[in-house]
Each structure stands twice: as C-alpha cells, then as structure tokens.
Amino acid sequence: VKVFRALYTFEPRTPDELYFEEGDIIYITDMSDTNWWKGTSKGRTGLIPSNYVAEQ
C-alpha cells in the first residue's frame, strides 16, 4: 500500500470510480494499470486517475 495526496478534486463518471477532493489522502492498493489505480479514501474504495495524485 502506498500513500498519495489528491492534487485535484475528482468527480466519478462511473460507479467504479472514487470521488475525492483536493488534499485528500488516498491509500493505493493496485497500480497494475498505468492510468487508473485502485485506492481507498474516507472508507470508500474505487478507481482513481493516476495523474490526479502525488506520492507522499
């Protein structure tokens, strides 16, 4: 598990995607895809765009 911080707010387009706000901490559990990672924030899990976060 790696810890990342959201650089921007992300509004999901599908139920599989995770909503998060700029500054949120996201725990990444799967980075197997280059563009979409699986992450958890505020008790919810979903896909996030990798270019919206920076490693802490």
Score class of each variant (00 low, 15 high):
residue 39 G to L: 01
residue 48 I to V: 15
residue 5 R to A: 06
residue 3 V to G: 07
residue 47 L to C: 07
residue 27 Y to G: 03
residue 8 Y to P: 00
residue 35 N to A: 12
residue 39 G to K: 01
residue 13 R to I: 08
residue 12 P to F: 06
residue 12 P to Q: 04
residue 43 G to V: 02
residue 38 K to Q: 12
residue 15 P to L: 10
residue 36 W to I: 06
residue 22 E to Y: 08
residue 42 K to S: 11
residue 2 K to Y: 11
residue 34 T to W: 08
residue 8 Y to T: 08
residue 40 T to Q: 11
residue 49 P to D: 05
residue 56 Q to H: 14
residue 20 F to W: 01
residue 39 G to W: 03
residue 21 E to C: 08
residue 36 W to H: 04
residue 5 R to M: 13
residue 56 Q to W: 15
residue 1 V to N: 11
residue 47 L to T: 06
residue 32 S to W: 06
residue 34 T to V: 13
residue 37 W to H: 02
residue 40 T to M: 13
residue 25 I to W: 09
residue 34 T to P: 15
residue 10 F to Y: 15
residue 37 W to M: 03
residue 34 T to F: 10
residue 9 T to S: 12
residue 26 I to Q: 00
residue 19 Y to R: 13
residue 25 I to K: 04
residue 23 G to Y: 03
residue 33 D to H: 08
residue 13 R to W: 05
residue 32 S to D: 08
residue 42 K to V: 03
residue 45 T to M: 10
residue 52 Y to S: 11
residue 44 R to K: 13
residue 56 Q to I: 15
residue 30 D to A: 05
residue 54 A to K: 14
residue 35 N to I: 13
residue 5 R to K: 15
residue 12 P to S: 07
residue 35 N to R: 12
residue 24 D to M: 05
residue 41 S to I: 14
residue 19 Y to Q: 11
residue 18 L to Y: 01
residue 36 W to E: 02
residue 24 D to N: 03
residue 6 A to P: 03
residue 15 P to S: 11
residue 3 V to Q: 10
residue 53 V to Q: 01
residue 4 F to T: 06
residue 30 D to E: 11
residue 37 W to Y: 13
residue 25 I to V: 11
residue 36 W to G: 01
residue 24 D to C: 07
residue 24 D to T: 04
residue 37 W to K: 00
residue 34 T to L: 14
residue 27 Y to T: 09
residue 56 Q to P: 10
residue 17 E to R: 05
residue 29 T to Y: 15
residue 36 W to T: 04
residue 33 D to F: 04
residue 23 G to D: 05
residue 2 K to T: 09
residue 51 N to Y: 10
residue 42 K to L: 07
residue 53 V to R: 01
residue 29 T to I: 14
residue 14 T to K: 12
residue 47 L to G: 02
residue 8 Y to F: 12
residue 13 R to S: 14
residue 31 M to W: 11
residue 30 D to G: 06
residue 24 D to K: 00
residue 47 L to D: 03
residue 30 D to K: 03
residue 34 T to D: 14
residue 39 G to Q: 00
residue 54 A to V: 15
residue 46 G to H: 02
residue 30 D to P: 02
residue 41 S to R: 15
residue 52 Y to I: 08
residue 10 F to Q: 05
residue 18 L to F: 04
residue 36 W to Q: 03
residue 26 I to K: 00
residue 45 T to C: 10
residue 44 R to F: 08
residue 22 E to T: 10
residue 17 E to N: 03
residue 25 I to H: 05
residue 55 E to K: 07
residue 47 L to F: 12
residue 2 K to E: 05
residue 10 F to A: 11
residue 29 T to S: 11
residue 30 D to I: 04
residue 31 M to G: 04
residue 54 A to P: 02
residue 52 Y to G: 07
residue 7 L to K: 08
residue 56 Q to N: 12
residue 4 F to V: 14
residue 45 T to D: 07
residue 31 M to F: 08
residue 21 E to A: 08
residue 6 A to K: 00
residue 48 I to A: 03
residue 43 G to K: 04
residue 26 I to G: 00
residue 27 Y to L: 12
residue 49 P to I: 04
residue 55 E to T: 08
residue 35 N to S: 12
residue 14 T to Q: 10
residue 46 G to A: 02
residue 18 L to M: 11
residue 38 K to H: 13
residue 33 D to S: 08
residue 50 S to C: 12
residue 23 G to T: 02
residue 42 K to T: 06
residue 12 P to G: 07
residue 45 T to Y: 14
residue 43 G to P: 01
residue 37 W to R: 01
residue 28 I to F: 01
